[in-house]
Amino acid sequence: NKEHILAQKEVLTPIEYEHYVKHLFDIGEITKELYIELSS
């Protein structure tokens, strides 16, 4: 869920976080809207 993803932002580097969010989007775990929101 969104809270879990945002928690990852605390422990990952910005680049790792971007890759993580992109991966979730690629596998269909999150919607495009959520992907855009989380990567901003």
Rank of each mutant, 00 (worst) to 15 (best):
E29Y: 15
E3N: 13
V11R: 14
E16D: 11
V11C: 08
E37R: 02
E33R: 04
K32D: 10
T13F: 06
I36W: 08
I36V: 15
T13D: 14
Q8A: 11
N1T: 11
D26P: 00
S39W: 05
K22A: 07
E37Y: 08
Q8L: 11
V11P: 02
Y17G: 01
L6E: 08
E10H: 08
I5V: 09
E10T: 13
G28D: 04
Q8N: 08
T13L: 10
K9H: 05
H23W: 11
L38K: 00
I36H: 15
T13Y: 03
E16A: 09
H23N: 13
S39Y: 04
Y17M: 03
D26E: 14
P14V: 09
E10N: 08
T31I: 04
G28L: 03
I36N: 11
L38D: 00
I27F: 08
E33W: 04
Y35D: 00
K32W: 13
K9M: 10
L38P: 00
I5L: 07
L38F: 05
T31V: 05
H4A: 10
V11Q: 12
Y20L: 14
I36G: 12
L38R: 00
I5D: 01
E33L: 05
Y35K: 02
E33T: 06
E10P: 07
L34P: 01
L34A: 08
S40K: 11
I27T: 13
L6F: 05
I27L: 13
A7M: 09
Y20V: 03
I36Y: 14
N1M: 14
E16V: 03
S40E: 12
E37M: 06
E18I: 10
D26C: 13
L6I: 11
F25E: 02
Y17V: 01
L34V: 12
V21R: 00
L6R: 08
V21G: 00
Y17S: 01
L24P: 00
K2H: 06
N1L: 13
E29A: 15
Q8F: 08
K2P: 11
E18M: 12
E33Y: 03
E29W: 15
F25G: 01
L24W: 03
T31L: 05
T31Q: 04
F25K: 05
E3P: 06
T13W: 04
H23F: 10
L24V: 03
Y20S: 01
E10W: 02
H4K: 15
K9C: 04
H23G: 07
I5P: 02
P14I: 12
S40W: 10
Q8V: 12
Y35W: 12
G28N: 07
Y20T: 03
V11G: 09
P14N: 11
Y35L: 09
Y20I: 05
I36R: 07
V21S: 00
K9I: 09
E29V: 12
F25V: 03
E37F: 07
E29L: 15
S39E: 08
L6Y: 04
N1A: 08
Q8R: 09
I30S: 00
L6S: 05
H4W: 05
I36S: 12
K22T: 09
E37N: 03
G28H: 06
K22Y: 07
A7Q: 11
Q8T: 10
T13S: 13
K22E: 10
K22D: 09
I36L: 15
H4S: 14
G28A: 05
H19I: 14
K2M: 12
S39K: 10
E16F: 03
E16Q: 15
L38M: 07
F25T: 01
Y17Q: 01
H4G: 10
E18Y: 12
E18W: 11
F25S: 02
H19V: 14
K9G: 05
I30N: 00
D26F: 05
Q8E: 06
I5E: 01
H19E: 14
V21T: 05
K22P: 00
Y35M: 09
I5T: 03
K2E: 06
H19G: 13
F25M: 11
H23V: 04
I15R: 10
K32R: 09
H23P: 00
V11L: 09
V21A: 02
E29D: 10
A7W: 02
L38C: 03
H23S: 11
H23L: 10
E3D: 13
E10F: 03
L38Y: 04
E18S: 07
H4Q: 13
I27V: 15
Y17P: 00
T31D: 14
L38S: 01
Y17H: 03
L24N: 01
I5K: 02
A7H: 06
K22L: 07
N1R: 15
K22S: 09
E3F: 08
E3Y: 04
E16W: 03
S40F: 12
Y17D: 01
Q8D: 02
F25D: 01
Y17F: 14
I27Q: 15
F25N: 02
H23I: 04
L34T: 13
L34C: 10
E29M: 14
L6P: 02
E29F: 10
K2G: 05
H19K: 14
S40H: 13
E18P: 03
L34S: 07
I27K: 13
L6T: 07
T13C: 04
E18Q: 06
L12S: 04
E29T: 10
L12P: 01
D26Y: 09
F25C: 04
E18H: 10
D26I: 11
I30T: 01
K22V: 04
T31Y: 03
Y35G: 00
I27W: 10
Q8G: 03
A7C: 03
K32E: 12
D26S: 10
E3A: 12
I5N: 02
I30F: 01
Y35R: 02
K22I: 05
V11N: 12
L34K: 05
E18R: 06
E33P: 04
I30W: 00
I36E: 06
E16K: 03
Y17I: 01
T13R: 07
E10I: 12
E33V: 06
Y17R: 00
I27D: 11
P14G: 10
Y20H: 05
D26L: 12
G28C: 05
L24M: 10
S39V: 09
E16H: 04
I30P: 00
K32P: 12
S40T: 14
P14E: 10
V21N: 00
E16M: 05
V11I: 13
K32Y: 15
H19Q: 14
Y20N: 02
N1S: 15
H4D: 13
G28E: 04
E18F: 06
E33G: 08
I15Q: 12
V11Y: 11
K32N: 13
K2N: 07
H23T: 10
L12T: 02
T13N: 09
H19F: 10
K2V: 13
F25L: 12
E10Y: 04
A7E: 09
E3V: 08
N1K: 14
A7K: 10
N1I: 15
L34D: 14
I5S: 02
V21Y: 03
Y20F: 12
P14F: 07
E16L: 04
G28M: 05
L24A: 02
A7P: 03
L38N: 01
D26T: 09
L34N: 05
K9D: 01
E37L: 06
Y17E: 00
L38G: 00
Y17K: 01
E18V: 08
L12A: 02
Y35Q: 03
T13H: 08
E16P: 01
T13G: 11
H19W: 13
E33M: 06
L34Q: 13
E37Q: 10
I15E: 14
L34E: 12
N1Q: 14
I36F: 09
L12D: 01
H4P: 05
K2C: 07
K32F: 13
E18A: 08
I30H: 00
K22M: 07
E10A: 12
E10R: 08
H19C: 08
I27Y: 11
G28W: 01
E18K: 07
H23D: 09
D26A: 10
K9F: 05
G28T: 02
H19L: 15
S39Q: 13
A7V: 06
I15S: 14
L34H: 06
E33A: 12
I36T: 09
E33D: 11
S39P: 00
Y35I: 02
E10D: 14
L12N: 02
T31P: 07
Y17A: 01
I30D: 00
G28Y: 03
S40R: 10
V21M: 07
H4F: 07
L24Q: 04
L34G: 04
